[in-house]
Design a protein around this nucleic acid. Structure first.
Lengths: 263, 263
DNA sequence: CCTGTTTATCGTCAGTGCGACGACTAGGAT
DNA sequence: ATCCTAGTCGTCGCACTGACGATAAACAGG
């Protein structure tokens, strides 16, 4: 009994965003407090419905722009964020209202400005007033909190912190980021245009949640051709001995990869 | 001007399948000849629309069952095929009829039975009669042909062999498979339940399109704990000295990975 | 039976890359 | 001056890989 294609359900198609940044040695993600009816008041990943003539990637970029003001150069090493498709979630019943198929996207933004004020400012400064009138509540939540709450949910079967199936989406987005900085130069997307080896190392440490040996890390990244190009300048914004500044090089794939400590 | 969610277009949601197998030292994919109006007569990836209350993965498994008769153990090392989500394609205009968002899936099936008859039989034997009445034309096409035709398309701007944007979907599916057998034990999904080291090596050679040193390959796979489990039996179905038979072990991630020759 | 062919399996050896860690450098703070 | 912090250069041993020799166990054909 083959499925009959002429009977088609009314599908809604949405995009959800896992926006990741490293701030104060923590991997953080952007969450918004829901003002709408299902899961009202819970935190959720930013997202929205796809327009009738809108490309999926364009919808994701538009949502990002609305929520953070950031532009994306898709797969481009420009001044903007990195955006890529993550996975699609379409369980019937994941949204109690109607059948919603949501295409999740992963966004990596530069977040090394350590001042908390200017950091949240990148969100505050550009959120357009939503239909509800007031500014939506937006937060850079440490991923650890959200995910450990998730595993705690498994133990005590308490409801998760995030609405819908957004825990799972976040977990898979974080997994993807953790895996991808291993074999690509994507970690530089978390850094400002110019950065030091130490700053890049702190990105890896925050994303992986491990400590890396500064000497071996330095040898590895400076020894991989095309990964980093020195700009000539130095900075001492971290204290200690001034460090060389680098830009991201042309290489996107790291071969051999950056090894993540196992344990 | 934020996008207004209340205005929602009529989306159709479909699944497309990149079904890969290794047969006669070639990586092949399952294509069906279209009998419907757009691109009628062209080859296309198998696929179909998602049911109103149907999960995406369930829809993919159903389509696979209808087209090949194969069952899937999702992420299970059982007797059946491997299925995983690949990516979602939603460009407006990718289907001239209506807005179709298609969730592509990757399926790896065991195909080492070298008899061509029994091999196509796995398709023939179980295709349910489609609405059109006759049996749909189904073919295991070597991936090289389809993709080289694709690159030829770029040179001479001739229309591609596959309908819609299925060249791109196939290319990304093949890329995923090529990348994934590098750091996971997924290559065993191309093999029957019991197989020899040489058979596994020929899978790698077919998927990557390279020649591997039999001695180093043997050392590598037998030296990785949890990758292969000897069953005790031997076989000489390949001619030459009889080889030990193995089953896939519990390990799913290979660490260190199987290295793909660069050049 | 002997020989060539095919495939499987075991070893050897040199080169590469990584983890562990010592040593030195160049700034700021006290 | 002395500590403290962070960056940078070296060294050593180990693990793994690539190249390749050698042996083993089947079959085909003379």
């Amino acid at each position: 009994m083959p499925f009959e294609p002429s009977v088609q359900a009314p599908f809604a198609v949405a995009v959800d965003l896992v926006v990741l940044a490293v701030h104060r040695s923590a991997l953080r993600t952007l969450v918004v407090r829901r003002g709408e009816s299902p899961d009202r008041g819970r935190w959720a990943l930013p997202g929205g419905f796809v327009g009738a003539q809108e490309d999926l990637e364009a919808a994701a970029a538009r949502e990002l722009k609305e929520k953070t003001g950031l532009s994306v150069h898709v797969a481009g090493n420009g001044d903007a964020a990195h955006l890529e498709q993550l996975a699609t979630y379409g369980d019937p019943g994941r949204d109690p209202r109607t059948r919603v198929v949501s295409v999740a996207h992963l966004v990596l933004v530069s977040g090394l400005g350590e001042s908390h004020e200017s950091y949240t400012g990148v969100v505050r400064g550009s959120v357009l007033g939503d239909a509800a009138g007031g500014e939506p509540e937006v937060r850079w939540a440490p991923v650890d909190e959200l995910l450990s709450a998730d595993s705690e949910m498994h133990r005590r079967s308490s409801p998760s912190l995030l609405a819908f199936d957004h825990d799972r989406i976040l977990a898979e987005g974080v997994d993807r980021a953790r895996a991808k900085i291993e074999y690509s130069s994507l970690a530089t997307a978390f850094c400002p245009p110019e950065f030091t080896v130490g700053e890049l190392r702190r990105v890896y440490e925050a994303v992986w949640g491990v400590a890396l040996d500064p000497r071996n890390f330095h040898r590895k990244v400076t020894g991989t051709p095309g990964f980093l190009v020195p700009t000539g300048g130095t900075t001492s914004r971290q204290g200690g001995r001034p460090a060389q500044l680098f830009r991201a090089g042309g290489a996107t794939l790291l071969n051999p990869p950056m090894l993540r400590p196992e344990a």
